[in-house]
């Protein structure tokens, strides 16, 4: 009869483990995200809601400018469309971590597997990211067809901007997810509040020049500002109105690289710190109730 012994060497987390866990978590995330019992509700949430938000802005803008702000309208539509990704990523990451702890109560079983919670979290949230990109495409399509937005895509700029921007936004989302792990289950609404604050200072709907001066350093320090600017140039062929629009494309891209390179390690370190703090406080398997 075989006798079980502890293996002489025991590995920690390996890259193949993390990759396998990520892929598996993508499947889980999709199973959860696509499990809307009511397809109508799913359509409203994923399509109608972001479209309606963008259209409200457009109507307000047209009333204020009396239909005279064509170039600014394009700025508004692209910013509003892309911001769906920020809401989707941040909301998805936080929802994943809180659902696993509070609703499915699987957090403790995930934590005690040899894989890290980090790839599972990223994989779980990817479905929300995919859905948010659908909202981006739909909002842009409505802008082109109904509002006269002219797209002149520059793939060489758009692709790296999208990859870097998504990386930065996911890093911010991971940080917020770690933070929300310290909080009660009502924390699901926090990412919307944070994304809303970033919405104002990242130049999504206002050019940075119109913000109060004390907010300018913040706006220039966060990667979402440079992601939006690079993406606008990659989609429209020109930059935003104001100072930021006068910078060369390469400078914008370089600033996106730099700010992302700063944010990602900080966010990962923050997540690791939050995880340790959750272990310290006994929050990993806590069900907070509402």
């Amino acid at each position: 009869m075989a006798v079980i012994e502890r293996p002489a060497t025991v590995e920690g987390l390996t890259i193949p483990d993390a990759w396998r866990s990520f892929r598996t978590a993508v499947g889980l995330g999709w199973a959860i995200e696509s499990n809307w019992s009511d397809p109508f509700l799913f359509a409203v949430y994923t399509i109608a809601k972001p479209l309606a938000a963008a259209m409200i802005l457009v109507v307000m803008f047209n009333v204020i400018t009396q239909g005279q702000g064509g170039e600014f309208l394009q700025f508004l539509i692209v910013g509003s469309a892309l911001w769906n990704v920020v809401f989707g990523v941040m909301g998805g990451l936080v929802q994943s971590i809180l659902e696993d702890r509070e609703r499915y109560r699987m957090m403790k079983y995930l934590v005690v597997t040899p894989t890290s919670l980090f790839p599972i979290l990223l994989g779980r949230s990817l479905a929300r990211v995919a859905v948010s990109f659908v909202a981006v495409i739909l909002t842009l399509a409505v802008g082109v067809v109904l509002l006269g937005v002219e797209l002149r895509p520059n793939i060489l700029l758009l692709v790296p901007a999208t990859i870097l921007g998504l990386t930065a936004v996911m890093a911010l989302g991971v940080f917020i997810a770690g933070w929300c792990l310290q909080l009660r289950q009502e924390a699901w609404s926090y990412p919307e509040a944070i994304a809303g604050a970033l919405y104002l200072v990242s130049g999504a709907i206002f050019p940075i020049d119109v913000l109060p001066t004390f907010l300018h350093p913040i706006a220039y320090a966060i990667p979402t500002t440079w992601w939006l600017e690079a993406s606008r140039r990659g989609l429209l062929g020109h930059g935003s109105p104001g100072t930021i629009g006068t910078l060369p494309d390469l400078v914008v891209l370089a600033l996106l690289v730099v700010t992302t390179a700063v944010v990602v390690p900080l966010a990962l370190a923050g997540f690791a710190w939050f995880m340790r703090r959750a272990r310290e406080a006994g929050l990993l398997d806590m069900t907070t109730g509402s």
Binding site: S21, T24, A31, I32, Y104, M106, Y109
Partner: peptide, 28 residues
């Protein structure tokens, strides 16, 4: 590994087999 009792944990929308397979992947 760990098993706790007296709770209703689980991804309800997965089948029993799917849930076990998912964890087999997390265990490498």
């Amino acid at each position: 590994n760990m098993v706790a009792g007296g709770e209703q944990s689980g991804y309800g929308l997965l089948t029993l087999r799917e849930q076990l397979w998912m964890f087999s992947q997390f265990y490498g």
